[in-house]
């Protein structure tokens, strides 16, 4: 079966810094894939290259077999993306953002209206009907971002830090939506540095460290008998780094 997302030898260098160094990852169809790593490990860079937002220096990314860089219209129509920290059309309300994007993607007007209504109500954004996106809180921004990723009914979701700054109630809603999406045959890749969350949601894990894949496979294969956090610290933490204390903070 064609993988939902297949990344082969992706590389990116910014100036002197090698951000991503020949990363290979395979996300099988129907899997819930967690990409973990420290800040600056290369997660965002890898995901950006995988969905056509950043041109790689080398390597390729295929979404259900369609190459993101040589066949973008087919590849990108099958993926929904939630990037981390990028702007939205800020002077629109949530509903207007969804209407705009739906029409941009060529969906019929009635379908757009129906889906926008449903997404806004499920994500509890319909209470802020008159609020412009620029006035949204960080959690609301994540939710409207997720709504834009889901709007065109993609078969693969690529989510960069979807739970960062999201309150527990909204997080529970998002988790339910994502689990339902996978149960319905969809595939998800999400990045996070919260190990507990990845253990709770994902069935596949990839560990990125210093721009390289340190480990990848099913959750059980990667963590073995230990917790994911212990495995992760063992993989990426350098030996002998004891936790240092700040002398002036304790009395």
């Amino acid at each position: 079966m064609t993988p939902a997302l297949e990344i082969t030898g992706l590389s990116k260098t910014f100036g002197e810094k090698i951000a991503v160094d020949h990363v290979d990852l395979t996300v099988p169809q129907g899997s819930f894939y967690g990409l973990v790593g420290q800040n600056g490990a290369g997660k965002t860079t890898t995901l950006s290259m995988a969905v056509g937002l950043l041109r790689p220096d080398g390597g390729s990314a295929r979404i259900f077999g369609a190459d993101v860089w040589s066949d973008p219209s087919r590849a990108l129509s099958m993926v929904g993306v939630l990037p981390d920290g990028l702007a939205m059309p800020e002077r629109l309300t949530g509903r207007e953002v969804l209407t705009y994007l739906g029409l941009l993607r060529g969906l019929p007007k009635a379908v757009v209206a129906e889906r926008a209504e449903e997404l806004l109500s499920v994500l509890e954004l319909d209470v802020a009907e008159k609020t412009l996106v620029i006035e949204y809180s960080t959690g609301m921004r994540k939710k409207i971002g997720l709504a834009t990723a889901l709007l065109h009914a993609p078969r693969l979701l690529v989510l960069d830090e979807p739970f960062e700054a999201v309150d527990p109630v909204s997080a529970a809603t998002i988790k339910t939506i994502l689990r339902g999406f996978v149960a319905g045959g969809g595939s998800i890749v999400l990045s996070s540095h919260v190990m507990a969350l990845v253990e709770q949601l994902c069935d596949h894990v990839g560990v990125i460290d210093g721009g390289r894949v340190a480990a990848a496979g099913t959750l059980e294969q990667v963590r073995g008998g230990r917790s994911l956090e212990d495995t992760f610290v063992g993989l990426v933490g350098s030996a002998g780094t004891g936790t240092k204390e700040l002398s002036w903070l304790s009395r």
Partner: peptide, 15 residues
């Protein structure tokens, strides 16, 4: 003035 909102345009080729 739109800043990184450009990403939405990139995810819809042909827009």
């Amino acid at each position: 003035v739109d800043g990184t909102a450009l990403w939405l345009t990139l995810t819809v080729p042909g827009a």
